[in-house]
Design a protein around this nucleic acid. Sequence first.
DNA 1: CATAAGTGTTAGTGTTTGCTGTCGTAAGCC
DNA 2: GGCTTACGACAGCAAACACTAACACTTATG
Lengths: 123, 123
Amino acid sequence: MIDSTLKAIVEPRRREILRLVRHVELSAGEIADHFDVTRPAISQHLGVLEAVGLVTMRRAGTKRLYRARPEGLTELRAFLSDFWDDRLQQLGYMAQAAEAAQTAEAAAVATARKAGRDDTGTA
Amino acid sequence: MIDSTLKAIVEPRRREILRLVRHVELSAGEIADHFDVTRPAISQHLGVLEAVGLVTMRRAGTKRLYRARPEGLTELRAFLSDFWDDRLQQLGYMAQAAEAAQTAEAAAVATARKAGRDDTGTA
DNA sequence: CATAAGTGTTAGTGTTTGCTGTCGTAAGCC
DNA sequence: GGCTTACGACAGCAAACACTAACACTTATG
């Protein structure tokens, strides 16, 4: 699950695609225009990104519009944080922190401490 | 640079190795004992991890002791944070974008057309 | 219904990658 | 010196991956 998401992220072209559709919605053709490879190649990359939940797609006439899925990115960030921080928090933490950060970052940190457990992670 | 680091992280066995030597120093043989593959295979993984600066090695007699290099992990985390936050310090931006996109999808598409090819991708 | 535009899908290909098996090398022990 | 331990280095192989080319499908437009 997380493994496939990581594999999707590794490909440089897919990271670039993710950057393109992070804030705006783009059609497959518009995305392909940013690269030198053929459109089918980009279509495959989009399929991979959609399969792992990093982008969403909606049809608009003959076009298909893609957009980054913030939740997918959040989940990946949560996993990576967990990986490095030694199971300091759970998956839902990042979303809570993001919400709390709008008013105060310190509050988010406090939430992390509150939700966290002992980090005696001697693997 | 970051690309090779990401590639090193993607391999599940290398992530497991990284977990093993995160807090304690282990010899190549001890690390290999945790896996079903042969020692040369683990040796190759260790070589990759060392090449990208995710682990350090020191010789102790006939043994070679490996340990995670925290700085390497920090650099990768910094890159990933920069990638997702787009050097916009606000953590809660994603939620706002997702909410706003529902009401201003047409505007987003228009913006995309207007933006055209500002970045041809040189990751 | 016929045609064109916009994409996804499938088959096939070259390259990369992780693994095994064998060999070479440096450090300790008799 | 000769032997064992511990490890890396070098081919060789099989699977995975990204790409291209050709085809199929869906949606407007006449």
